[in-house]
Simulated assay, not measured.
Amino acid sequence: MTNNFLSRMAVVAAGLLLSVAALANEGGDLQQSGTDLDDRASLQRGAALYMNNCSGCHSLKYVRYARIAEDLGLSEQQVMQNLNFTGGKFGDHVISAMTPEMGVAAFGKAPPDLSLIARVRGPDWIYTYLKSFYLDESRPVGWNNTLFPNVSMPNPLWQQQGLQQPKYGPKDAAGDRPVEGFTISQPGSQTPQQFDQTARDIAAFLEYAGEPAALKRHSIGVWTVLFLAFFAFLAMLLKKEYWRDVH
């Protein structure tokens, strides 16, 4: 009975690990984003990039403008002038102007809320996804993505990145030719290195949006470690005092 139970649990655990791996690595290997939540400038740039390029379709319904201002060191005026394009109030959640009906009409499905995308996929997935768009005339919107094949959205950052054409490899067992790389047919406004930073900043901002408390937790963690080190030092001195007369 015990062996059967353990065997079943092992099968379930293996299945969960495979599911997580498939979800995290959908469509290809992930590139390291190098996000840093302690880099406030990166988070500020990421917020501006997200609001200007992504928030027209994707909401952040669990994040408020006021919380962004507090956490990222921005004033109310800066947030309302540079990050709020829907006319919402300072204390409102970040809601897209695009309704689900508009999304279905434009893309065939409503764009998802991205509040928790970094907690589900991870910042490396977001970073790789933003860099993996390429032109594909067979798709309804004219774009495809190697990490998320047949995605129903265009490249929101094509003006910065440029237009990527796919480089196909030899046919596989199924007769398909996988995309093995890209060539830039029309340069964007940024160099590849600059675009890497753009994708990194957006990934960092979405990582923050998935758990805003992480910023404070990081700072509190430093003081917690220092307290524990000091407490350990006091405990060592107390031990020596107690055992000083014991031979």
Rank of each mutant, 00 (worst) to 15 (best):
R64F: 15
A47V: 11
L74F: 14
V151F: 02
Y134Q: 00
T183S: 15
A199L: 02
V120S: 14
K171C: 00
H58L: 10
G108R: 05
L16H: 10
Y129Q: 12
Q160L: 14
V11Y: 02
R119K: 05
V11H: 10
L23T: 11
D124L: 08
A69C: 09
A24R: 07
L226H: 07
S75R: 01
A204P: 04
T224L: 14
N52T: 15
D92W: 11
R139H: 10
G108C: 00
S138A: 05
A47T: 08
V79P: 13
N25H: 06
R139N: 08
P100N: 09
E26K: 15
K109D: 15
R244W: 06
R121Y: 09
K89I: 12
W125T: 08
Q78I: 06
V11D: 03
M9R: 13
S59G: 06
L83M: 12
R244L: 14
G27Y: 01
P170G: 01
F133R: 03
T198A: 09
V222Q: 05
R8P: 04
I95E: 14
V79S: 08
L49T: 08
I184Y: 01
Y242V: 00
E137Q: 11
S42P: 04
M80L: 13
M51T: 12
S138Q: 08
V11E: 09
V12W: 05
V63I: 06
Y127R: 14
V141R: 02
A174T: 12
D172C: 04
A41P: 04
G46V: 11
I95G: 14
R119V: 02
R217T: 04
R177Q: 10
W223D: 06
P112G: 04
G122A: 04
G46M: 13
S185D: 10
A174M: 15
G34M: 06
W125H: 14
G122V: 13
T128L: 03
N82I: 03
Q160G: 14
A174I: 05
C57R: 00
N4D: 11
M236T: 05
F85I: 12
S115W: 07
N84V: 14
G87H: 10
L30A: 08
A203N: 05
P156L: 01
E241Y: 09
K216G: 14
A118R: 00
S152W: 03
S7L: 11
Q190A: 08
A41G: 12
D245G: 06
N84A: 13
G56T: 12
G27T: 10
I117M: 12
E180Y: 07
V246S: 08
V11T: 15
L234D: 09
L83E: 10
P100S: 12
F230L: 15
Y134M: 03
P112R: 11
A47P: 06
S7K: 13
R67P: 01
W158S: 12
S75Y: 13
A106L: 10
F230I: 07
D172A: 09
A69R: 12
